[in-house]
Design a protein around this nucleic acid. Sequence first.
DNA 1: CGTTACGTTGAAAGGGTTCAATCCCTGTGG
DNA 2: CCACAGGGATTGAACCCTTTCAACGTAACG
Lengths: 248, 248
Amino acid sequence: MTKIKSAFKASCSNCGLQKICVPTGLKRTDIDQLDEIVDRKPPYKKNEYLYQVGQKFNSIFAIRAGAVKLFTYSDSGEEIVHGFCLAGDVVGFDGLVNEEYTYNAIALDTTSVCNMPYDQLADLAVKIPDLNHQIMSAMSKKMFDDRMHSELLIKRNADQRVAHFIWNMAERFRNRGYAHDEFRLPILHRDFALYLGLTPETVSRILAKFNSEDIVCWKKKQVQIFNETALKKIAGLAEADPAGQEFG
Amino acid sequence: MTKIKSAFKASCSNCGLQKICVPTGLKRTDIDQLDEIVDRKPPYKKNEYLYQVGQKFNSIFAIRAGAVKLFTYSDSGEEIVHGFCLAGDVVGFDGLVNEEYTYNAIALDTTSVCNMPYDQLADLAVKIPDLNHQIMSAMSKKMFDDRMHSELLIKRNADQRVAHFIWNMAERFRNRGYAHDEFRLPILHRDFALYLGLTPETVSRILAKFNSEDIVCWKKKQVQIFNETALKKIAGLAEADPAGQEFG
DNA sequence: CGTTACGTTGAAAGGGTTCAATCCCTGTGG
DNA sequence: CCACAGGGATTGAACCCTTTCAACGTAACG
């Protein structure tokens, strides 16, 4: 286990994301086995594709650092943004069912990933039930995420959507052990607007309002939350939030 | 295979939905095995639940006749309609990952289903790879469906949403071998509106307009399509549609 | 045959989009 | 190091689509 590569790139067992990434809940020996199949390639540069629609499915990607945008194009050629993935998220399950990816996944930032070849992962999952469970759980997370997205689009107005999105991001950082009231979010307002089904202008106006009301400030890819209570209230979330569930 | 029950209730091998339901592509002997585990209970009455959020996952349901609505409630208690299932559709996969259902599934009409206990289905799937493939394929269909829904909510205006929905329903009937320009749709306009993220009033107005323009008529749960071309055009779908893909 | 829930229609209000102009940041090249 | 270009962000004003509220029709059910 003391490979040379470990000196340069974290192995699963000493990775800071162990608690939320695929290894969660696995035994040390199992993690080491998982570690063996992980292919740690050089980071993707900004605007590089992890995979594209129609490409043959071969790998699941665990994001170690950076951010990824998932998107497709509508019949009329407009971009549809389906979601964003941050460090600790696992992407690529959309390719599982039909052996080919159904989204485009692009790096929004310099993004390093742990590439897990699916045939090897599947073999391992047969031997390690906990791992199988982890894979199922990641898929479940994705489905829940999609549902929240629909709910946002169906029921919420622009203010609520923006507030909900920012709050959700904060929770994701919190669950990863990072500061939840101040973080880098390398997402263009344009992409953010597309995800919420709004125009960039509307998003800009709402962010300006939130800023003037000292609720949040999102400028130059840096987010600061000044008033959590107000943000949650606008987002339409229950006041008394015990832990804050994750859906990312 | 000549059981008494077959005299009353179709077996898989002589079911008219064989071409689109779970047995698709299976060998005759495999279908007979599948048939053995199918539990054909008396039909659900209107407004009866097939399952509810949080209920322990135990079965997949293939709809033989009738219609089912999938829905949840938002934090603020509003109903969110996630989709509708018609004869030939397979529901219940939402329960697969975490061993409990994540939607409410309610019969919109008298609905008869083929109940497939999942433990038995899973056992069988191990022995019949084609069956396993069918299960994956049904999940994939569901995910595609959800994506179309998001796309509809993000990009389309009310006219387009209504037209797209009706067109989609027509395609589903066409793929089942039924008339695609005239069919029964036991969906309340209210539920339809919720699904599209619109108000019942807006839907009513748009249907009235479509009716006055001799495009479609949807009254008393009966849909008639008079002008396919116009409908597709409004829905924002490409003019030259060869087969019409399914997403239900 | 009445009650209840769903559907329709109208008018008014509001929220988000659209379009256009301007600003600002980032990266590029001289 | 500075000037310039280009994409994204911001801001304003007008418009338009959808919602809202309210009243009325109508179908379904006991």
